Amino acid sequence: MQTDEKARYAAMLRRGAELKLALAEQAEPVLAIVDACERALRQGGKLIFCGNGGSAADAQHLATELVIRLRGAVPRASWPAITLALDTSAVTAAVNDFGIDEMFSRPLEGLGRAGDVLFGITTSGKSANVLGAFKKAKEMGITAVGLLGGDGGPALPLCDLAIVVPDTETARIQECHIALGHAILTLMEDRLVRQ
């Protein structure tokens, strides 16, 4: 049994590495996302993140990298970023009063502004509340960025920019999403601190 577990463990890490190597070939869409984020921050906008479950944790993680710091060796000011899944009172009120589909779109309506960037993180591309946020972003002139999985699902056509991790295993997709998020924010930070 232990030999089988060793093989499974190695296979998981290899699959994650293969996916990241495939994503390394997608520099153009990543740089387009970096452009949008840089433009938003330079023009006084903010980055807004949303997702469910592990993707909500990734949304919090990435927003924190901007508000607090990404790399200790890079001195810079705090930058404006929020996650729509952080405030349990707002989340539960939105679900209760408007339904799960508007869980993120309702707070986005109040907190977002034209010129902001919304990152919707969904491993399936099917999360109804993330889809609702993408639709609201379009209405408001907010750039919709998808960190998606599988084939992108119904989220893909709602995004202005997107990166799709071509896999169906949630854990592998999430590993790639956080790696992509870190890469995007690092490239953006390099641009903004050089000014």
Rank of each mutant, 00 (worst) to 15 (best):
V67A: 13
L192D: 04
G146S: 06
N96A: 15
I121L: 14
K20A: 11
G120F: 06
K20S: 12
T168C: 03
G181S: 02
G72Y: 13
L161P: 01
L147Q: 05
D35M: 07
E109A: 14
M12A: 09
Q174A: 07
L47C: 07
L13Q: 11
G115A: 04
S89T: 15
T123K: 04
L41Q: 04
T92H: 07
D116A: 07
L21F: 08
V164D: 00
G99A: 06
E5P: 02
L192F: 01
R71K: 15
N52V: 02
P80S: 09
I173K: 03
M188L: 07
E65G: 04
G120S: 06
A179Y: 03
P80G: 09
E109I: 08
V74G: 08
I142K: 02
L131S: 08
V130C: 05
I173Q: 03
L21V: 09
V91K: 00
V164Y: 00
L192G: 05
A133V: 10
M1A: 14
A137N: 01
A17M: 10
S124Y: 07
V130Q: 02
R71Y: 15
Y9G: 08
P29C: 15
T3R: 13
E5K: 13
C176G: 05
T143I: 06
P75I: 15
R76G: 13
G51A: 14
A22N: 01
W79M: 14
E65H: 04
V30C: 12
A85G: 15
V117Q: 04
G72F: 14
G16H: 04
V91Q: 01
D58Q: 10
G54Y: 11
L108G: 00
M12H: 14
G146A: 05
L21H: 14
V74D: 12
A59Q: 00
L180Q: 09
A11S: 12
V165E: 02
I163C: 10
A27E: 14
R191Y: 05
D167M: 03
L131E: 07
A17R: 14
G54A: 09
T143A: 05
D116G: 07
D4A: 13
T3N: 10
Q43T: 14
D35N: 10
E102L: 11
V145G: 04
M12T: 13
C50I: 08
I100Y: 15
K135S: 11
Q43D: 13
L19W: 01
A94K: 00
I142M: 06
G16R: 05
R8K: 13
E169G: 06
S124K: 08
D151L: 11
I142R: 02
T88V: 03
K135R: 12
V34K: 02
Q43G: 15
Q43P: 13
N52P: 15
T122L: 08
A162V: 07
V164T: 06
V164E: 00
F49C: 00
A183N: 09
G150Y: 00
E25C: 11
V165A: 05
